[in-house]
Design a protein around this nucleic acid. Structure first.
Length: 670
RNA sequence: GGCUAGGUAGCUCAGCUGGUUAGAGCGCAGGAUUCAUAAUCCUGAGGUCGGGAGUUCGAAUCUCCUCCUAGCUACCA
């Protein structure tokens, strides 16, 4: 039976560029959607930019733009970035749209009609200079429990306490650095508690991953509270009907943006019926799948289903929650050059390399995934070029040059072909469950078998014997048929490469059903390399191009330099033990030595102004302390990637700091 | 701080309803091969499964403690 499936990715916020993190989610979604389409299901994939909130308002102001102009420019950029990675939406809309306004108002009206909306006075910090209320993230002060300075309004990084922003000591607004005052205001609340039982059932159903429902139990067991869905002016968003200065909180209308994007599409595509996908009861005939990150589970698993149910709409069939991305084991960092934007990536590398690498990671859990840049290059080159594509590459020449591009009329080893094709049920189950990594692993294992098969039969020898030419043709045809199966399996992950593979085989675009029949007696086209190797150099260039100086903290700057720094500021500086692997004088420089430091995880070059006190040969192998996360600095004689700590006034009086014996390169210094 | 997850060979991961000598791929070493984008094939070395204690005939797998990483903690989105 053909399924009708509506799929969404979380809406990227219109305050910044698309980066590796967004791409993980949208590539994951796109793979799942393409798999569904490949199987012949009706699958609609919609997304949008999330545009509302204080963030957009402030950013627009800073850029000297109207919010509408800012979000439109952002949206175009986002669409371009995603398209560059082959992500194929049926619609990419905006939450600042008429459809979304209408649906938000409709839903609010329905909630109100049912008596699920009430108002309460809320005391909140207010910036008297900017005349705006301050969300927790826009105010900093001292932790009421441990007294740590420079803490946000919701919880303390130093001691972990959670508190109300009004409890902060010496609060200051991050918007104007004015001292905020407590002010009362009327807010609108959605009554969540009546939905507790429904949510308990639903979060323990197959719609929700077990580890996510474990987490949600914390909220459910602790007792749900009413949800504050309004924000005071000034705010960029939709005015709440019947008010003049109250807006829908961005998280109220953001998920409705999924509906709005679909509505916008359905209004233009006759075959789509909005109600058939969204009305209560639609669960029986249509599916709704959301793909999100683990940071926003509460919005999607508690507020959203409750709002849907209350407003007479259907609930999601399944929510696919994923983890986050680290690069070389640590969070993406602008100074390390690992905060990689989609547009920068596309200038240096083939998008399908990333699609493949992500595909090898995706396992349907909320685990974080690490992008190891070394592994990235080796994995793509070895799996795709060395193994999978190599099968086609090594058979194509013989078929094209010796047999006029014609495939044999029958399979040389039908059992082997069947072994490949018969894994399709298993492969489909894995794709359906989001366990794409297992599909990729199996494809590579099968590719190994195919290469072994070809090596064993050595068609390049057979073809030289007049009486065994037919066998050579049969072996290569077999090889190409094995390759064809793998290419079909890979199509959701690598649509570009697999489209080229289908063209090469003279076939229509692949369908999952093609796995039922081998390709025999057909004419193939001349072989063009289907995938080219990655160069480590290109990855290095990408990282280099992504390096940015760490952004100055605007609020701190506005406040002037404090005499004492907070522990938080100090913690930003990463000190490490390093071993001097090599030290050399720098030609033409009178103070610098070029040090190659071993920092445990690799080597880096530091240009240190210590030649007046140290000779290079005296430094080799000694341990020093280095500032590991200092922004790399281009100097006249090269790039310096850190700073070696030393005491003294300079000249001959420079004294390098050394750890006591036992310290190892890479150890943190605190 | 609390909660939810994760910590297994140099790297990326599988195994984890407890049961023979802990697996795969990459990388590395040696050999074969030359059809193929220095691709492929064969062989091999590499791990006291974050640390500690416990339950058990038996623990990577279960329990407790501890360390490290990520996310959340209802007004950042």
């Amino acid at each position: 039976m053909t399924r009708s499936i509506l799929v969404t990715s979380a809406l990227p916020y219109a305050n910044g560029a698309i980066h590796l993190g967004h791409l993980l989610e949208h590539i994951q979604t796109d793979i799942w959607v393409r798999f569904q389409k490949l199987c012949g299901n009706r699958c609609i994939y919609v997304c949008a930019d999330d545009t509302h909130g204080t963030g957009t308002m402030l950013n627009a102001e800073q850029a000297g733009l109207a919010p509408e102009a800012l979000i439109e420019a952002m949206r175009e950029e986002h669409i371009r970035d995603f398209a560059g990675f082959g992500i194929e939406y049926d619609n990419y809309h905006s939450t600042h749209s008429e459809e979304n306004r209408a649906l938000s108002e409709l839903i609010f009206a329905r909630l109100k009609d049912q008596g699920l909306i009430h108002t309460e006075e809320v005391a909140q910090l207010h910036d008297p200079e900017r005349r705006m209320f301050l969300a927790d993230r826009f105010v900093k002060g001292e932790c009421p429990r441990c007294g740590a300075a420079d803490q946000y309004g919701d919880n303390c990084d130093a001691c972990g306490a959670t508190y109300d922003a009004t409890e902060l000591g010496n609060p200051r607004s991050l918007v104007s650095s004015a001292k905020p005052l407590v002010k009362r205001s009327e807010h609108y609340f959605f009554d969540l508690p009546p939905f507790t039982e429904m949510l308990q059932d639903w979060t323990n159903s197959s719609a929700v991953q077990p580890e996510v429902s474990n987490k949600l139990a914390e909220w459910l067991d602790g007792g749900l509270k009413s949800w504050d869905i309004s924000r005071d002016a000034p705010y960029f968003g939709f005015l709440i009907p019947g008010t003049e200065d109250k807006y829908f909180y961005v998280w109220m209308d953001a998920p409705i943006g999924y509906m709005a994007s679909f509505k916008h599409l359905a209004d233009r595509r006759e075959s789509l019926d909005f109600d058939a996908f969204w009305n209560a009861g639609a669960e029986a005939n249509t599916e709704l799948h959301h793909f999100i990150g683990k940071d926003i589970v509460n919005f999607h698993h508690l507020f959203w289903p409750a709002v849907l149910e209350a407003a007479g709409f259907r609930k999601p069939t399944r929510i696919h929650t994923h983890g986050f991305i680290t690069v070389d084991g640590v969070k993406m960092s602008k100074s390390r050059g690992t905060f990689i934007k989609a547009s920068t990536y596309l200038e240096h590398l083939n998008p399908e390399c990333l699609r493949y690498y992500y595909a090898t990671k995706l396992n349907g859990t909320i685990d974080d995934y690490d992008i190891n840049l070394e592994d990235f290059v080796q994995r793509v080159n070895s799996d795709l070029v060395g193994k999978v594509v190599n099968i086609a590459s090594r058979c194509a020449g013989i078929i094209n040059n010796q047999f006029d591009g014609e495939l044999a009329a029958s399979l040389e080893d039908e059992a082997l072909w069947r072994q490949f094709a018969d894994t399709r049920a298993q492969m489909a189950d894995w794709y359906e469950a989001g366990q794409v990594s297992r599909v990729m692993r199996e494809v590579v294992a099968l590719a190994d078998l195919a290469n072994q098969y070809i090596t064993k039969h050595a068609p390049w020898k057979l073809v030289k014997q007049a009486d065994r030419r037919g066998q050579a043709q049969a072996v290569c045809s077999q090889g190409l048929n094995l390759f064809r199966i793998l290419a079909i399996y890979l199509t959701p992950a690598l649509p570009g490469m697999c489209k080229a593979a289908a063209d090469f085989l003279g076939a229509r675009p692949f369908a999952w059903a093609d796995l039922g029949q081998p390709l025999l007696g057909a004419k193939i086209n001349p072989y063009q390399p289907l995938f080219t190797r990655m160069q480590k150099k290109d990855v290095d260039n990408l990282v280099e191009a992504s390096k940015e100086a760490p952004e100055a903290d605007g609020a701190a700057a506005a406040n002037g330099a404090d005499e004492a720094v907070s522990i938080e500021d100090f913690n930003k500086i990463k000190l490490k033990v390093a071993r001097v692997a090599a030290a050399a004088p720098v030609a033409d420089a009178d103070k610098l030595l070029r040090l190659t430091l071993d920092t445990g995880d690799g080597q880096r070059q530091v240009l240190a102004g210590i030649s007046s006190a140290y000779r290079p040969e005296d430094l080799a192998d000694r341990l020093v302390v280095v500032v590991a996360n200092l922004a790399p600095r281009k100097m006249r004689f090269g790039v310096s990637e850190g700073m070696v700590l030393a005491a003294g006034p300079g000249g001959e009086d420079i004294f390098l700091l050394s750890p006591d014996s036992g310290a190892k390169p890479g150890m943190d210094v605190r």
